[in-house]
């Protein structure tokens, strides 16, 4: 668990982070979201002491981060940034092995870990380990960046717009892969972004910030259903509901009374937003739900619009 207590950071005359108190639960993916200049990156960087605090304190598992020298602290916290920052003069293998080498792992253990991580991020170890960063595409570089951040198996991962520089197709693919990676590994992740879609898709919890302060904290659904502030509504906009739909599969809905037999068919794993899109594309109000080849029920436009609000 990461606890930030009354954290404040000033630059010259501007206050980047203004008396922020926040708790990040273990194993959750917490998104720091807000317009540029809202202090989300600065707040993230206080956690691994890339930015030193002017006031307040940060605790990880109850222990103040000030009790550990910054270098030692950082070796036990994964860190991935938008510009990736792969070391251009080192191979992919050496890049991934950076923190394990700093921690003094032996060569055999490092090699095994590199192979494991490359497979984990979906790259073939045999063909990628000896490449140089210049030979990688943007998406590949960012995968290596994530692998490098995970190298020493840190319990906490800090990510600063890691997919921000990618093209939309690659970005979406990496977001989905990362979401499933997170479900498997159960790391505590703090993730900075200004991309609402990304925040809603990935976040267990969203911390919405403005001008150095937290506006509201909660799951995407909580923010959607109960915005405490006009800013929350304005920031997420009219498409918020649609985006929320993308978080949920048809399987998550309570079975309704909608009859089967519509011509359009969707799978049980389809998310609600895609199901809606199919209805619009096919110009139908109802679709048949399949589980494998088996028909298990039906879903109507009304189900999504009305039932969703209650059950989510």
């Amino acid at each position: 668990m990461i606890e930030l207590r009354n954290v404040t950071k000033r630059y010259d005359t501007t206050v980047a982070v203004d008396d922020v108190t926040l708790t990040v639960p273990d194993g959750e993916l917490t998104i720091l979201l807000g317009p540029s200049g809202c202090g989300k990156t600065t707040l993230l960087r206080t956690i691994n002491r890339m930015v030193e605090l002017d006031a307040g304190e940060v605790l990880i598992d109850g222990q103040s981060i000030r009790s550990t020298p910054p270098e030692v602290l950082r070796r036990h916290i994964g860190y991935a940034i938008q510009s990736v920052g792969l070391f251009p003069h080192m191979t992919v293998r050496r890049n991934i092995a950076t923190v394990p080498r700093l921690l003094g792992w032996d060569a055999v253990r490092i090699e095994a870990r590199v192979t494991e991580l490359l497979s984990l991020v979906g790259l073939d170890p045999a063909s990628y380990a000896d490449k140089r960063p210049a030979e990688l595409s943007g998406g590949e570089a960012q995968r290596i960046g994530v692998a490098r951040a995970l190298a020493a198996d840190p319990p906490v991962l800090l990510m600063d717009e890691p997919f921000g520089a990618l093209d939309p197709i690659n970005r979406e693919r990496l977001q989905r892969e990362f979401a499933s990676l997170h479900r498997r590994l159960g790391k505590t992740v703090v993730f900075v972004t200004h991309d609402i879609e990304e925040a809603v898709l990935l976040g267990d919890r969203i911390v919405l910030m403005r001008e150095g302060q937290i506006v509201q904290t909660g799951s995407p659904e909580e923010l959607w259903r109960g915005p405490e502030h006009q800013f929350v509504r304005d920031f997420f906009g009219d498409e918020f509901g649609l985006r929320i739909l993308s978080r949920h599969r048809i399987a998550d809905l309570e079975p309704g009374a909608t009859p089967q037999g519509a011509s359009a068919r969707v799978h049980l794993d389809t998310n609600l937003r895609d199901a809606l899109a199919i209805m619009v594309t096919e110009s139908v109000e109802r679709v048949t739900i399949l589980d494998g080849e088996r028909v298990v029920g039906g879903l109507s436009f009304c189900d999504i619009v009305t039932q969703v609000r209650g059950s989510l």
Partner: peptide, 18 residues
């Protein structure tokens, strides 16, 4: 040297000398 490279090194816990 690109800033992002040095920043990444710092973020992973390299000391100034490293």
């Amino acid at each position: 040297v690109p800033r992002s490279v040095v920043e990444a090194g710092r973020g992973m816990g390299m000391t100034r000398a490293e």
